[in-house]
Amino acid sequence: MNFAVENTRPSIMYTPRTPQMRERQRFNLSTKLDDEEIDISGLEDLLGQTWNIYAVSALFDLRQDDIHFKLYSKRLREEIASTLSHEDVSYDAKFSVIENIVPRPNHENNPAIKIEVLAKINETEKEKSLYQGILLSWRITQAESNIKNLIRLPLLLCRGTSTCIDAVHATITRMFDCLIIALPAKEHDLNWLIPIIIMTNKEQPAVSGEVQMVYTVPELPVTDTITVKFQAADLRKILSAIITNQNDEINVFLNREHIEIFFEVLHKQMLIIGGLKLGLCTLHRINLPGITIMENKMKIVNLEIMDNVLLYLNEKAFDIFHTVHIDI
């Protein structure tokens, strides 16, 4: 099967964007966009599972119809069978559109695509899932492009065995001429995600209980950590006091200044109450009731929080890969 386009492609130079190159200035915590209620019920299938998070560059020649999905499935199955060859094991692969995940912010964005790889040892046993991945665009408006057959689905959420994940991503990279890289939540990201999570739905907070911030110590193993604990209600009070100029409860924004002041207050509390001066320690993981985010892994059990975290991660993935210079 030939995945090449009919016309010669322009060469593309991807310009990765780091927090130092373009600092995040604001995050919208509003539940509405352009006075229209957003349906996020399709995200329910993502809840309560641990997902690996990846960023994906533009996909070329990905046709979203049954005929092409069958061809992609056949190609992926053959590649997986070749890479993970085992005696008496048969493999199957499936591409499909996820109908119940409505693209944000409107129906003009590309629909989410599900990719599955299954294995069966013999005819009597049930199929075992080796890989499940979801390609999606969440809230970022599709950028105009003069390149034919180009689709933007910046986020890839997946789970499965590490060998199968590597094999699937290598195959997708070749099939659609794209790049796939892990999208870890660095300290800068966790500094934003903690306020985003605890401020989701101020009237009926989405989380309560203990918030754990896990710090790693320079030159020590990653297992040697310092855990700082706060109550979510106390953190929410601090943030509410910092966000003093927003009287409109419908449109709530977190600004970079809010985040900086928030952590200045927390660091003073750590020093006064616990005698901790973290210095060069790095925030590595956050744990809240039902929520864990560390590196490029996350597990979330709340629908609204999943929505906000995907909004944040999609913007980060879009920033990395989809600000491009076209050299024709």
Rank of each mutant, 00 (worst) to 15 (best):
S240I: 05
K237M: 09
T216A: 05
L254Q: 00
I197K: 00
E210M: 07
T173A: 09
E203K: 14
I273S: 11
V168S: 04
T227A: 11
I194S: 02
L278M: 12
G279S: 05
T244F: 15
T244H: 15
A185V: 04
L179D: 05
L193S: 06
A233Y: 09
Y215L: 11
P218E: 10
K268H: 11
D248G: 01
K186S: 15
I180E: 07
H267W: 13
L220Y: 12
A241M: 09
V228K: 09
I238Q: 06
L220E: 14
N245F: 11
A233R: 12
I226F: 01
A182D: 14
F263G: 05
E187D: 11
E264Q: 13
I242V: 13
E187G: 04
H169R: 14
T171I: 02
D224V: 14
I242K: 09
I243F: 02
T173G: 04
F230Y: 15
H258Q: 05
I259M: 04
D248V: 01
R256M: 04
G275N: 05
L276T: 03
D234M: 10
L266R: 09
N251I: 08
F230H: 14
M199Y: 02
G279V: 01
I196V: 14
E219I: 05
F253T: 06
Q269N: 10
N251L: 08
K202Y: 10
S240N: 14
W192D: 00
E187Y: 04
I242Y: 03
T173V: 13
V207S: 09
P195N: 05
E187P: 05
F262P: 01
P184D: 13
S240Y: 06
E260H: 08
I196D: 10
L266D: 05
L220I: 03
E260Q: 13
A232W: 06
A182N: 07
N251G: 00
Q246Y: 02
D189I: 04
T225L: 05
T227I: 15
D224F: 12
L193E: 02
L278A: 01
L266V: 00
A233L: 08
F253Y: 14
Y215N: 07
L190P: 01
H169D: 11
T216Y: 01
I226R: 09
L193Y: 05
M199T: 07
I198L: 15
T223P: 03
L235W: 03
E219H: 12
I172M: 15
K277G: 04
N247D: 13
D234E: 13
D189P: 00
Q212P: 00
M213K: 03
I250E: 15
L271V: 01
L271W: 10
T225V: 15
G209K: 10
